[in-house]
Amino acid sequence: MKSIRDLIQTEELDQILGNPEVVIVDCRFDLFQTEWGREQYRHSHIPGAYYAHLDEDLSGVRTPQTGRHPLPETEAFVRLLSAWGVTPNSLVVAYDQNGGAFAARLWWMLRYWGHERACVLDGGWEKWIRERRKTSTEIPAPSKGTPWLTPKNDWLISTEEMASILGNNQWKIIDARAPQRYSGEEEPIDPVAGHIPGALNRFHGFNLAPDSTFLPPDTLRQQFLELLGETSPDHTIVYCGSGVTSCHHLLAMSIAGLGMGKLYAGSWSEWIRDPNRPIRRGNQP
């Protein structure tokens, strides 16, 4: 498969089911019921799909210094992709039930580690089911692929780098969480509420149309350019609660033809590990 587009449509995926160069990954997950996605996968999924658990597969070991979903080590990700049968020629298609909120994490990880043939199913599982497309309960056996990965370390911003950037008007920081979490009015997950000083808020769900498909590229481009102002996309840093839904913005920016911003993978849950780091509450950056 030669496609390296960011999105694939349901009708396109339907036509290539069973192609040995296509690897489908179900990323359904619920932060509050962490086994829900796996249970749903066992009940029904797109034929041939493997399952990726956010905590177990798409994250590394959490420590007192990291956020809730640190990136896995390269060796662990290689083992995972190998078990899915991924080769350098594979087209990896990720989907979930949240308009790509979790699938975008896998898409970004693949691109970060140099596997360009990765895309997200536009509209995800919900659109697939609405259109009454094929489903299966059969769980594919582990395979043995030959992934080739080289991380693009300049795509990441560390906590130390984030702290040094605060107040630098050459950078734009975007918080992808819901407005209530950004302002600190609500914080259902992390022990401290608020946001990183200077960050602008754009909820990742704003990238989607009412049917959970992505907005047209031109619309996304206009919205992000208005948000960024004179800041270039490569001087944009995106974060969220734990470095997951922030990837949704990076996917949207790529769809819009704006290239790839930088990910603060530790995000809010790592920032607040040190009580001496500044935080802000309210609706202002």
Rank of each mutant, 00 (worst) to 15 (best):
I139R: 04
T66Y: 13
G243W: 07
R280C: 13
A101E: 12
E75G: 04
S90D: 03
L80Q: 10
G229I: 05
K172G: 10
S246F: 02
F77K: 00
G124K: 11
R202K: 14
K144R: 11
E35L: 08
H249S: 03
N98H: 15
A104Y: 06
D96L: 07
Q222M: 08
A103C: 03
D218W: 12
E138T: 10
E56M: 13
F29P: 03
T66M: 13
E35K: 05
E11G: 03
I157N: 02
Y41V: 07
S242W: 05
G167S: 10
Q223M: 11
N276E: 15
M162K: 11
T135N: 06
S242G: 12
Y264H: 11
Q97V: 03
D211H: 14
I46H: 08
R68Q: 08
C247I: 10
I157Q: 06
H248E: 14
G37Y: 03
R130C: 05
K134H: 00
S183R: 09
Q284C: 06
W155R: 03
E138R: 06
Y182P: 06
Y41I: 07
T63N: 02
D154K: 12
D26P: 05
I24Q: 10
Y112K: 01
P47G: 00
G257E: 02
N19L: 00
F29W: 13
K152V: 03
G60E: 12
I196H: 07
F32Q: 15
Y112P: 03
I272V: 14
I139D: 12
T87Q: 11
L7N: 00
V244E: 11
I237D: 00
P216V: 01
Y51G: 01
L215S: 07
S254G: 06
H45N: 05
T66G: 15
K172P: 03
G124H: 09
E21H: 11
G229L: 11
K2T: 13
V238A: 14
M109Q: 13
I139N: 02
P188D: 01
R133Y: 09
G282D: 04
N283P: 07
D274L: 14
R79W: 01
E161S: 01
F77S: 04
I255L: 04
E230K: 13
E56H: 15
V92L: 14
E56V: 14
G100Q: 05
L7Q: 05
L106P: 02
P147V: 11
G259K: 09
L58N: 02
T10S: 15
P64F: 05
G60C: 06
P210M: 04
I16T: 12
W271L: 08
Q180F: 05
E11K: 06
L228S: 05
G60F: 12
P64I: 14
I8K: 04
S212V: 05
L54D: 08
A118P: 00
N168P: 01
E186D: 13
T236C: 15
N207Q: 13
R5V: 02
L156R: 15
C247K: 10
Q15V: 00
I24E: 04
E126C: 03
I8E: 04
Y264I: 10
F214C: 08
P64V: 13
N207H: 09
A199I: 12
Y182S: 05
R132I: 00
S143P: 02
L228R: 06
